[in-house]
Amino acid sequence: MTVRTETPPQAPRQAPRNAPSLRHRLAERGIDSQLLLLVPAMVFVIGLFIYPFLYGLGLSFQPTNGGGPLTEYKRFFEDTFQRDTIWKTLRLAIPAALFNVLAAVPIAYRMRGRFRGKRLITTLLVIPITLGTVLTAEGLLNFLGPAGWFNRVLISAGILDEPLRLVNNYWGVFFSLVITGFPFAFLLILSYLSGIDPSLERAAATLGADWRARFRRITLPLLAPGLATTFCLTFVLAFSVFPSAILVGNPTGETRVISIAAYQAAYEQYDYPFASAIAMIMGAIEIVIIGVVLLWRSQFYVGSTGGKG
C-alpha cells in the first residue's frame, strides 16, 4: 500500500550521466523531500521528550552535594522512608491493576455481543475517565466519608454499627484507582473481545464444548495478549498515582507513593538531581514490570483472529 514514487525524482536534465544523481538514489530508498513533513514532529519529540529525559538522566548522576555519580541513587535506597515508597506504590498498583483486569473480563465477556443500551453503558463508563482523579478524589471524600451516603446506608440497614474508615487511607486510594481504572480496562477488553471472530466459538459449540470449555480453550488464549496489554496500561496508570494519593490517601503514611517522593524532592526541597533520580527509578521499575508482562505475553499466539493487543 505504500506509494514510493509519488514525487518522481526530477533528476537534473542538464547532467546526462550514467550514474543516477544522489537525489535519485536516495529517493529509491524512500528518502525525498516529502519526509520533511516529519521534521516538526521529530524536532518536537526530541526537544520536549527525549532531551528532557536524557537531561534528567544526566542530572541524576550529578549530586548536589558532591560525591560519586551514584550518590543520589544510594541516598534513595539507603533511606527507608524513601525506599519504602516503592513497596507502597507496588502494593497499591499491582492489586488495583489486577482487580481492574480480572473484574473487567467476565463483564466484558457478558457484554461482548450487541444489545440495546450498550452505547449508553460505555458512555457512562467513560465519565470517570474524563472526570479524572482529582474530581474522583473529591467525590470519594464526600461519598465514602464517615458521614457519607455509603456509610449511612450500611448503618441504616443494620449491617454496620459504626462507619467504616474508607478514606484517608489505603482503601481510599484503591477505590479511586478502581473508579478510574476499571472503565479503562473494561473498554479495552471489550474492544479486544469484539475483535475475536465469533464463528470460532460457534465451531467449538458445534463440537460439543460447553460454556466453560469454550471460554478456557478458545476465548481466553486469544484474549490473553490483550489482557497483558490492558494490565500494562492500567498498571502504568495506577503506578503513577499522584493526586488521589494526596487527597484521599494518607500522603505522609501508608500511601506515600513514589510520585509523591519525587514531587517533594523537586518542588519542596528543590533538589532536582534527587528528584530526577527518583523519576528514573520510577521509570525503571515500570519498564521492568511491563517487560516481564510483555515477555510472558510473547508466549501467546498472536494472529489475525483478533484479541491481540
Binding site: G56, L57, L59, S240, A262, A266, A279, G283
Partner: peptide
C-alpha cells in the same frame, strides 16, 4: 509513559 515520570525532568528543563 505516565506523565509524572517524564513530567519532572521536563519541568526541570
Amino acid at each position: 509513559m505516565p506523565p509524572i515520570t517524564y513530567g519532572i525532568p521536563l519541568a526541570t528543563v
